[in-house]
Simulated scan of single mutants.
Amino acid sequence: MILKDERSYTTEEIARLLKVSKLTVYDLINKGELPAYRVGRQNRIDSIDLENYINSSKNKSMNKRSNTNDTPSDVVRSIKDAVIISGQDITLDILADSIKLEGFKSLRDYNGSLNSLISMYNGKCTIVSTHLFDGDTKEYNIPFIKRILTGHSYMVINLVSRWAGFYVKPGNPKKIKTWEDLTNLNVTIINREKGSGARVLLDEQIRIRNISPKELKGYYNEETNHFSIATAVAQGIADVGIGIEKASKIVDVDFIPLIKESYDLVIIKSEEQSDLIQSLLKILNSSEFKKKINTIDGYDISKTGTVIFETN
């Protein structure tokens, strides 16, 4: 494999290069075997560190074939035994650290809400976060969870509440205030990827207003997180994007609040996960955890730890 020394790679790119899952890459990073650093919300790995890891793995394979600590099956087992938390919000990183302190191994998977629920249905996630707006009921999360996790027993617990709305340029020069304003021919939007909560929010809001995606200029231009959306607006790539309030406090854009969304956690109920569920409820209802969340602008913790819905 030939790598350019000046390059750095995302976890997704590393997974493709090594032909492994993203969770395997996260596990290698958590173990310290693959050095990484943060740029915004993403892990980055320098090409020289990837090259060193590959060479080190080759040497281990040749010199320590009898050492079971280096077998691929152990990596798979390590991931299987871990608590996999899926979602993109910074509060989930705080939760992952708290779960580790309770004696569980935790890994992060940075998937959107809809894709996270589908992964849970397929047994690939332990805890998923959701902020999915249903236009017919005007509810968050429960309608989607009921449809996707059919046949499963689960619990839905509030993590935080937060405002979702429009990112616009300072001063809002295009006077964008409503969902209908997005159809203005002089307005260009930047969209989130399919499966994300922000994308579902937009799609549901235009659906119930009988607005076609084709009426929205820029609808098919996508970014993969709130900060990238806000940055695209700040840089003039788009006039408006949908996201949460927190990103607007970091990027130089104005925020137009539209809806208070419930950002909830879902966990499958089973005898094997009873200890984890108790630890999760303990963490979410602890003053220490709430104090950490409260230090970050843009979150409402008044319902944190509240069980929103639970199957029998």
Results as ranks from 00 to 15, higher is better:
residue 37 Y to K: 10
residue 160 V to G: 00
residue 103 G to P: 00
residue 30 N to C: 05
residue 186 N to P: 03
residue 262 S to I: 12
residue 152 H to S: 05
residue 11 T to F: 14
residue 140 Y to Q: 06
residue 200 V to Q: 14
residue 75 V to M: 02
residue 7 R to Y: 12
residue 122 N to P: 08
residue 112 G to A: 15
residue 104 F to Y: 06
residue 165 G to Y: 10
residue 96 A to M: 00
residue 104 F to G: 07
residue 216 L to R: 07
residue 291 K to W: 13
residue 95 L to P: 01
residue 23 L to F: 03
residue 311 T to P: 12
residue 142 I to Q: 15
residue 84 I to H: 04
residue 255 F to T: 10
residue 41 R to M: 06
residue 304 T to Q: 13
residue 175 K to C: 01
residue 256 I to T: 10
residue 52 N to G: 01
residue 135 G to V: 08
residue 249 K to S: 02
residue 3 L to N: 07
residue 15 A to F: 03
residue 131 H to Q: 06
residue 117 L to N: 11
residue 70 D to H: 09
residue 151 G to I: 12
residue 127 I to N: 05
residue 266 V to I: 15
residue 70 D to W: 12
residue 194 K to H: 11
residue 24 T to Q: 03
residue 198 A to I: 08
residue 270 S to V: 15
residue 233 V to F: 15
residue 44 R to T: 01
residue 96 A to T: 00
residue 154 Y to M: 12
residue 132 L to I: 13
residue 81 D to T: 04
residue 2 I to C: 14
residue 298 G to P: 08
residue 221 N to Q: 05
residue 109 D to C: 00
residue 261 E to D: 06
residue 11 T to W: 14
residue 219 Y to M: 11
residue 193 E to N: 11
residue 82 A to S: 07
residue 307 V to Q: 10
residue 67 N to G: 04
residue 13 E to A: 13
residue 28 L to V: 04
residue 305 G to V: 12
residue 305 G to K: 11
residue 202 L to D: 08
residue 216 L to K: 07
residue 65 R to S: 14
residue 171 G to H: 00
residue 213 P to H: 07
residue 255 F to E: 14
residue 130 T to F: 10
residue 181 D to I: 03
residue 236 G to I: 11
residue 155 M to W: 08
residue 46 D to F: 04
residue 8 S to E: 05
residue 51 E to L: 05
residue 89 D to P: 06
residue 85 I to S: 01
residue 63 N to L: 15
residue 45 I to S: 09
residue 291 K to Q: 15
residue 30 N to Y: 09
residue 179 W to M: 03
residue 282 K to P: 11
residue 37 Y to V: 05
residue 167 Y to V: 01
residue 139 E to K: 14
residue 169 K to M: 09
residue 255 F to W: 15
residue 291 K to R: 13
residue 44 R to I: 03
residue 159 L to A: 03
residue 43 N to E: 02
residue 12 E to N: 11
residue 215 E to D: 09
residue 211 I to F: 01
residue 116 S to G: 10
residue 9 Y to G: 09
residue 218 G to E: 03
residue 293 I to K: 05
residue 304 T to S: 14
residue 223 E to C: 06
residue 217 K to W: 09
residue 287 S to V: 06
residue 20 V to R: 13
residue 296 I to A: 07
residue 260 K to W: 05
residue 150 T to G: 08
residue 298 G to E: 02
residue 120 M to Q: 08
residue 69 N to T: 02
residue 157 I to E: 07
residue 131 H to S: 11
residue 270 S to R: 15
residue 209 R to W: 00
residue 287 S to Y: 06
residue 89 D to A: 07
residue 180 E to C: 01
residue 310 E to F: 12
residue 228 S to N: 11
residue 62 M to W: 11
residue 233 V to L: 14
residue 288 E to A: 11
residue 270 S to L: 15
residue 173 P to D: 08
residue 5 D to R: 08
residue 50 L to A: 13
residue 211 I to Q: 00
residue 128 V to Y: 14
residue 124 K to M: 07
residue 100 K to Q: 02
